[in-house]
Amino acid sequence: MSATRQPASTKGVNRSHRTRARAQTHLWVVQRVTAMLLALAVVVHLVMIVTAVRGGLSAAEILSRTRGNEAWLAFYVTFALAAGLHGAIGLRNIASEAIGLRGRGADLAWLTAGLLTAGFGIRAAIGLYA
């Protein structure tokens, strides 16, 4: 009917581009939100590291601070999740620019790697709490 109507094949390509652009936007938002969370968490982490190492570290000293403490558990779980996702999206961006590794499959693989890393961190956080 209309002269401006696109052929079906072009519409498919456009939809694919839109989906891809939306995925990129989502990843950018996750990267920036996790960056903001990490900005606070890393300051706390660095202050903790610098003060805790004074006079040497011991398991008893570390665990006395974290065992049964829900606030530290919540902090470390959030920190691990944010760090895992932030790191994986960063690696995705570098791989995309440096070696051209991109696409939906690659994005899902990076997301899995990020969540797996976060899982290791959450396991450590639970170890500190329990």
Partner: peptide, 20 residues
């Protein structure tokens, strides 16, 4: 960022194992 992202899984895994 690259070095930290590569170190992170190792750090979490080692810490999680050590905390057992």
């Amino acid at each position: 960022g690259l070095l930290l992202a590569l170190f992170l899984p190792l750090h979490f895994w080692a810490l999680g194992t050590a905390i057992s």
